[in-house]
């Protein structure tokens, strides 16, 4: 039984590591199709990563050991986070009481070093990106706790896989609660993975970028690690988002896996759709947007708590 659990955990970790670029490619492809372009093939992120891995690394002269350390720490952090994921309701590799806190904080470690590495260059561009990243990041953990954390506090489970297992959409009010939670979480995912209404991944002006500008001076293996970690992080958040809907029938059976895959596909479709119809917000308005997500969480929770 324990061996089976470990096997399931390893399988889900490899799933995330393997399919993370594919998911990014899928979103980009759909986005291109929605805007009437042909778009790059779905496998493009793999080609990009492979290319980056084999390239020469160029670093700024003002860079220090932080620039070398940060990509590795980033990657390690997302791997640890990925191994806590209940992919398709499987037993994750790392699961213990309170791992929801470790999950939130280990991504904080990644962010800490990413910001430092950006500031390491000493250029204003990176500074701008780092400052923006830091200021949006302060909302990330609160929203995380208002969504996933609120379920933890209500049900009493403190491990991510247990929390998701406890979700059952049998009551009307609970279903509404879960749906609104998932909406709030979607906003969080968009923020964390620097997708459209918060950050435009395809922008070409340094002044308007957030995540992209932080890795402006990275190349070769450094960039490879950043890009790959970014892809994994996106898939992590998407899996957590779909996990709200596991009661629809996702599980480790043929039907369950199909439902899970359809779930993921649907979210990629929604993500692409949102990116097509929205434009990036003004940077000044971003805190309001994030606060709105948090406010939804609070309201949702209030309504759920008092609806007895």
């Amino acid at each position: 039984m324990a061996l089976m659990n470990i096997f399931e955990g390893l399988a889900s970790l490899f799933f995330v590591l393997l399919f993370a670029p594919l998911f990014a490619g899928l979103v980009n492809k759909q986005k291109a199709m929605m805007t009437g372009r042909v778009g790059a093939p779905v496998w493009q992120p793999y080609y990009d990563l492979f290319k980056l891995f084999r390239k020469e690394t160029i670093r700024a002269k003002s860079a220090s050991f932080i620039s070398g350390l940060s990509p590795a720490i980033n990657f390690a952090a997302v791997i640890i986070a990925a191994s806590m994921l209940p992919v398709c309701n499987a037993h994750p590799l790392i699961s213990f009481k309170g791992d929801i806190i470790l999950f939130a904080y280990i991504l904080g470690t990644a962010r800490f070093f990413q910001i430092l590495a950006a500031m390491d260059i000493g250029s204003s561009f990176e500074g701008m990106g780092a400052s923006r990243e830091a200021s949006f990041a302060i909302f990330v953990e609160p929203i995380f706790f208002f969504t996933l954390g609120s379920i933890a506090f209500i049900t009493g489970f403190t491990s991510i896989s247990d929390i998701y297992r406890s979700i059952a959409m049998d009551r009307m009010s609970y279903t509404v609660f879960i749906v609104v939670c998932s909406i709030s979480f979607f906003i969080l995912a968009v923020t964390e993975c620097s997708r459209m209404p918060v950050d435009d991944p395809n922008t070409h002006l340094e002044l308007t970028m957030i995540h992209e500008v932080m890795i402006l001076d990275n190349s070769g293996q450094d960039l490879f690690f950043y890009q790959y970690s970014g892809n994994i992080k996106l898939l992590i958040y998407i899996v957590l988002e779909t996990a709200f809907y596991y009661p629809l029938g996702a599980g480790l059976t043929a039907v369950g896996v199909t439902i899970f895959a359809l779930n993921i596909l649907f979210v990629s479709f929604v993500l692409a759709g949102v990116e097509t119809v929205t434009s990036r917000f003004k940077l000044k308005d971003m805190p309001h947007y994030l606060l709105f997500a948090a406010a939804i969480g609070i309201l949702n929770l209030l309504i759920f708590t008092f609806n007895k």
């Binding site: 709105f292 406010a295 309201l299 309504i303």
Partner: peptide, 21 residues
């Protein structure tokens, strides 16, 4: 059902507080 609509109503209130248009 009434509760669900009330939640929507509350969300609209939040938006009313937030929007700048």
């Amino acid at each position: 059902m009434e509760n669900v609509l009330s939640i929507l109503f509350c969300l609209s209130l939040l938006y009313l507080a937030l929007t700048s248009r």
